[in-house]
Write a protein that binds this DNA or RNA. Structure first.
Lengths: 210, 210
DNA sequence: TATATATTGTTGCATTTGCAACAAAAATGA
DNA sequence: TCATTTTTGTTGCAAATGCAACAATATATA
């Protein structure tokens, strides 16, 4: 797990006790299986411990949209969304997930176990991190043209990687979804940026030339 | 204040003690004054108690953008953003703001005062609420056309107001920014929706006819 | 390995959007 | 109240985008 983890600051052999105290479950899922089927009707907060999953929205029209791609450390739950549509979480790789009852986290348990504070502190950090990620996306999305979206996105990656050369962690189909634009239009703009000498792009490897 | 408040569950006469314990400040600002001038270099988490403010980004080009409109109950801070640009918070009305040192909130104080838990619980709720608001905006922004953006936005307002008739809390200039689109293009699409009989719009009063 | 599935890359064309520029109306504040 | 500033409303036109459709790769899976 990475620096900010839900278990940060808790001794390994204490984690089991904690899980018990919180009535939380730590479960492994195989790729393509359903982790949670109707999120909106549950009171669950989940965290991906390893592997990855998608948060899926099932539209009233029967459309399936990926609302969010969940990675290691991602936090999800009904409290964080306001959809009337059906939401579900589907494993996109083998993964391990921990779930809590949200009320049980918010309302201190009677035993006031020492792990509780740590857990909430960690959860605060995860939420802060989530907000940063969402802010980044909003930044990209509010740019008017696909070119500006790309350049904003690349500049975020440049900052994260501390380098002008980096690898995309989304494929171009996913990137078009992330941007909320047509995929072919996205490809066209990538091509333009290459031809005009702003970037080099070989597959997922991007080099900024400015 | 509304249902979810940073002081929720804390007796009024305890709030002062709490402020002291947290080395937090509760300050009033006049309209158009600067609440925080270089957010990125501070370790502050702030909450708008009443009134409103804007979170402003000062670009390297000297561009000023409104990153976020902060209302009563809004939470802001460096931990929630990842800008290298200068961020500042400017009052858009007379308002009252409480600020905490983030580390002091996260790291339990030695006295482990009883208010601390309550504060963190409340902060969790504020963050959850913030995430919901951000999710709504991302939903709107990922729609491809201005028409779809408007309809998604209206449907969120419909759900919030439990009515097909409601008042916009942004003016059209602000709405165009919120959508990340050109204002004149937005006005054009509103006009189209009116002419095609989807909505009625008189000033900020919208009625959905579907 | 062979086959099926998913992703990338490309294009023409219709539609949507941004931009610029302006007038009218509304809101602000001296 | 009057002057100034902000917001609304409109338009023509150029540019950007979405859509559809397809071929070529690449990837996954039986």
């Amino acid at each position: 797990m990475n620096e900010i983890s839900i278990f940060y600051g808790i001794e390994n052999n204490d984690v089991k006790k904690m899980l018990n105290c919180f009535q939380s479950k730590r479960i492994s899922y195989k790729k393509d299986t359903t982790i949670i089927s109707n999120l909106a009707n549950t009171n669950v907060v989940g965290i991906i411990l390893n592997g990855s999953a998608n948060l899926i929205r099932n539209d009233y029209n029967g459309n399936r949209t990926i609302i969010e791609k969940l990675d290691e450390g991602s936090i999800f739950g009904e409290v964080f969304s306001s959809y009337s549509d059906e939401l579900s979480v589907i494993a996109t790789s083998d993964c391990e997930v921990i779930t809590f009852d949200y009320d049980h986290v918010i309302k201190r348990c009677k035993k006031s176990c020492p792990y509780h504070n740590t857990l909430i502190d960690n959860m605060l950090q995860l939420l802060a991190k989530k907000i940063v990620i969402m802010n980044n996306r909003i930044d990209v999305l509010t740019k008017k043209t696909i070119r500006e979206k790309l350049l904003e996105y690349f500049s975020i990656l440049e900052k994260e990687n501390l380098a002008k050369k980096f690898e995309l962690d989304l494929n171009y189909t996913e990137l078009a979804d992330y941007f909320g634009v047509d995929r072919s239009a996205l490809m066209r703009e990538i091509k333009n940026l290459k031809e005009e000498g702003f970037i080099e792009a070989k597959g997922k490897n991007i080099t900024l030339l400015f």
